[in-house]
Amino acid sequence: MAPIATPFFFYLLSAMMLVGGILVITQKNAVHSALALIVTLLAQAAIYLMLYAPFVAAVQIVLYAGGIMVLFLFVIMLVNIDRSLKEKQFNSQWWVGIIAATGLGGLFVAVYTKGKNIFPERVLSVAEADNTQKVASLLYGQYMFAFEIASLLLLVAIIGAVVMAKKKI
């Protein structure tokens, strides 16, 4: 398989992700935010493909774009958004946001400029062809316990969501 990690696609997809992310946090209408988030998620799935992680990409599409976002859209439709559209969209602690963002950003810049030399120059080659098989044998071998706990977590989440959202049990 020819390498597909070309710079062009990386920058295209990053631009899509960042524009999507900015739209998510700036749009007034929650449905528009959701649409922007879907674009971000799909672009990220494509970036996973570039990183030779096709199975994660598929999980991203199936679970995030096809599952979680449908849930979001459902809830946006259930709650009445007409009122919230007329309200102020940003709270009064925007300065906290700016301070936190600059602080975190500064931290990231400091860490990455200082630590970028610790990465090995050449990335190790990974076989893409049996990615799914390898992920499967790790998931059901070494990470079996974590897998079971994740299933338990999902069960708890289902019960919690039903208890929360139902008027009368």
Partner: peptide, 19 residues
């Protein structure tokens, strides 16, 4: 990191729970 920062700003400044 950029995506993370966007998320942090969104959590801290937006008033709409869904967003």
């Amino acid at each position: 990191a950029a995506l993370f920062l966007l998320g942090v700003i969104g959590v801290l400044t937006r008033r709409n729970v869904v967003i």
